[in-house]
Simulated scan of single mutants.
Amino acid sequence: MRAVGVQPNSFTLSSILRACSTVKSHSQTVKLHGLIVKTKAGCDTVVGNALVDAYAALGMVDDAWHVVTSMIHRDAITYTCLATRMNQMGRYEVALDVIVRMYMDDVEMDGFSMASFLSSSAGLAAMETGRQLHCCYHKAGLASGVSVSNALVDFYGKCGCTDDAYRAFKGISEPDIVSWNGLISGLASTGHISSALSTFDDMRLAGFKPDSITFLLVLFACSHGGLVELGLEIFSQ
C-alpha cells in the first residue's frame, strides 16, 4: 500500500496493530510505533488503544503504560485493553491497579472493563474488591450486560459463594454457554459435585450443547467426586 504511494490512516494503523497483537510480533509493533510517532498518528485514541494492546499482548507492560501516559485522550477501551492482557498473564493485582488509574483519569467503567476487573478479583479470590465492583455494577446500570453477569457468576463461584453465584446466574435473562460453564466451574471447584452435575443436566435440558470447556469441568467434577463410571460415560459422549 505504501509502495504505491497511499499513506495509512488511523483505521489502517489500528487494524495492523491488531494483527501484531494476534501474532505477537515485537519487531512489527516497534516499527509501527516509530511510524505513528513520526506521523503524529498517536493523537488518535483508536491508534493509541491499539498500540497499548499490542505492547500489552507482548508482555511489555512498561511500554504499554508509557503509551497510555503519552496519549492525549484515554477512554474505557484504553484501560480495558490493559486489564484484559494482565488477566491473561495472571497478573491480577496489576489489572486491579488499573481501576485507580481510571478513577484518577475520570474515565467511567463500561461493561467490558467491569467484566475484566471482576475476572481479576476472581483470580485473586478478592471478595471485598469483587463485592465493591458488584455495587458499582448496579449503580452504573450495567445489569443487562451478559459479559458482566457472567463475570459475576465466575467471581462468586471461585470465591466459594455458591448462593451468590446462583443469584447472579438467575439474574441473566438469556444465559449463554459461558454462563453455564461459569456456574458449573464454581460448583465443581468448591466441592459441590452433585450440584455441578445437576447444573450440567439442566444446561442440556435447556437446549445448550456442551463445548470442550463444559466437558473438562464435568470430568473434573467426576474425578473429584470419585464417580468413575459416570466420568467414563460422559467421556464417551
Rank of each mutant, 00 (worst) to 15 (best):
R131T: 06
V178S: 03
M109P: 07
A50L: 04
H73C: 06
V52Y: 11
I36F: 02
V153N: 14
V100M: 03
G182F: 09
F220P: 00
L124H: 04
S25P: 00
L152M: 15
T78M: 07
G160R: 01
L232W: 10
T190D: 10
A54Y: 03
V148I: 10
G182V: 11
G141L: 13
L152W: 11
A126L: 04
L227A: 06
P210N: 10
N49I: 05
T45P: 15
G186Q: 03
G171T: 02
L133E: 10
G5Q: 04
S27E: 01
S10F: 10
A76K: 10
W180F: 09
H26Q: 05
L124E: 08
Y55A: 01
M60F: 05
P210T: 08
F169N: 09
A95T: 11
S198E: 15
G42H: 10
C136W: 10
A168K: 08
K209P: 00
L118Q: 08
S15G: 09
A206M: 13
A50V: 09
L227N: 07
R204G: 04
D163V: 07
G34S: 02
S21P: 01
L96M: 15
K31N: 00
Q7M: 08
H73L: 12
Q28S: 03
W65V: 02
V178R: 06
F11H: 13
L205C: 05
I99V: 09
Y156G: 09
T12C: 14
Q132N: 09
E93N: 08
S189Y: 03
T78Q: 07
S147K: 05
D164G: 00
T84R: 13
F169Y: 13
G90N: 05
M102A: 06
H134V: 08
A151T: 08
S25F: 00
Y79L: 11
C20T: 01
C81T: 07
V228G: 02
K139V: 13
R131Y: 02
S70N: 15
D62H: 02
H138P: 00
F169T: 11
S198I: 01
S116K: 06
F11M: 10
G111N: 11
M104I: 04
V98T: 14
V61D: 05
D62A: 03
I16N: 01
G90R: 04
E93Y: 06
Y156R: 05
A206G: 07
G186P: 06
G90Y: 06
A221Y: 05
V178N: 06
M102P: 03
V228A: 13
D110C: 04
T199D: 07
I16D: 01
P8L: 04
F112N: 11
R18V: 03
M114D: 12
L197H: 12
H192Y: 13
S195Q: 15
S198M: 14
D75T: 03
C161I: 00
L197I: 14
S10T: 03
I184L: 14
C43W: 06
L183C: 08
L118H: 13
N87V: 08
I193R: 02
M203Q: 10
V100N: 07
F215E: 05
A143P: 00
M203C: 02
T80V: 02
T22Y: 09
S144M: 12
E93M: 11
G130F: 09
L17N: 05
C136H: 14
A54S: 15
E174M: 07
G145R: 12
Q237I: 12
S10M: 01
R167H: 10
S14G: 11
